[in-house]
Amino acid sequence: MQPQPQDLLHLATQKCTLGCAILDRVLVGGIPCNSITEIVSESGCGKTQLCLQLLLTAQLPISRGGLSSSSLYFHSEFPFPSRRLHQLSLSFPTSQENPNPLDRIFVRGVQSAEELLGLLDRIDTIIVNPPSNVPVKLVVIDSIAALFRSEFDNTPSDLKRRSGLFFKIAAKLKLKAEKFGLAVLVTNQVVDLMGSDNGINGMRIGNSSCLLTSGRRVCPALGLSWANCVNSRLFLSRTEEIVVTREQRGSEETNEDVVITQRRLQVVFAPHLPKASCEFVIVRKGVFGLEL
C-alpha cells in the first residue's frame, strides 16, 4: 500500500467546547481533536474541574460545539470525584434523548505508567463500541504527572527509562487520536523553581518568560522531554489577594479580611493559538471565564 497525502481542504480540525463562550474564545473553539492538549497547574487551580466539565460538554451535539460522543477518563489521583461530576451534570443538560449523561462517561483508575501503556493498547474496542453505543471522542488523563513522580529515581538510567516511556505513551495517544479523531486532554502538575538562576528548569518554554502561581515561580513537571510530547500546553494559575473591606454589623464597625482568589488560564504554546489568557471562576455550576 502506498502512502497517500491527505486532502487539506477537507481536513478541518474538530473541537470540543469547554461549555463557556469566554474560555472557548481563548482556545478558538475549544480542545482540538487529533492532538494532545495539556493543562498544567498547581493543585487546587481547577484542572480536574475543567476535565470533568469537558467530559460533559463532549456529549453536546456538534451543532452546540460538542463532539456528540462518549468519553474516557483515566485518573491516577484517587478517589474519583463522582459527586462533583454528578453535580456538574445537573447544570450541563446535554441532550434530550440522553437523560443520564453519566452513562456516557467511562472511568478507569491507573496506578503506573506501564499500566496506562497496557490499557492504551486495549482501548480500541471501547472507543469504537462502548456500552453506551456512542463512540468515544474524548480521552482525559488526570494526571499524567502522578504516574511518573513516584516510582522513578533521579539517576541517569531511570531518567532515560522515564523519557522513553513519555515518548511511548505520547506516540500511542497520538496514534489513537489520529485513528479515531480523539481529543486528548492530559493534566500535569508543577514543580517550584528554586533560586534565582535560570537553570535547566528555568528555561523559557512558550509565551511567557516565567509561570507564576500563588506568588511562586513554577515550571511544569516532567521536564523538557515531556514538553516535546504534547501539542498544546495551557497553564492555570491563581493568585490570592487579601482585600480589607469595611462592613457594618449592627452598630459596630469591623475590618474583615476577605480573600479573593483570582484564577487565570493562559496559552503557553499551541500550534494554532496566539498568546492569550483570561480570568475564570469555579462555581457550583462549573468553570466559567470572566469578561474583563
Binding site: 480540525t13 478558538v28 492532538s35 501539542n231 500550534p271
Partner: peptide
C-alpha cells in the same frame, strides 16, 4: 510542498 507531520501539530486553520 510536501509536509510530513509526525507530531500532529499541523493545524489546517493555521495554514
Amino acid at each position: 510542498a510536501i509536509y510530513i507531520d509526525t507530531e500532529g501539530s499541523f493545524m489546517v486553520e493555521r495554514v
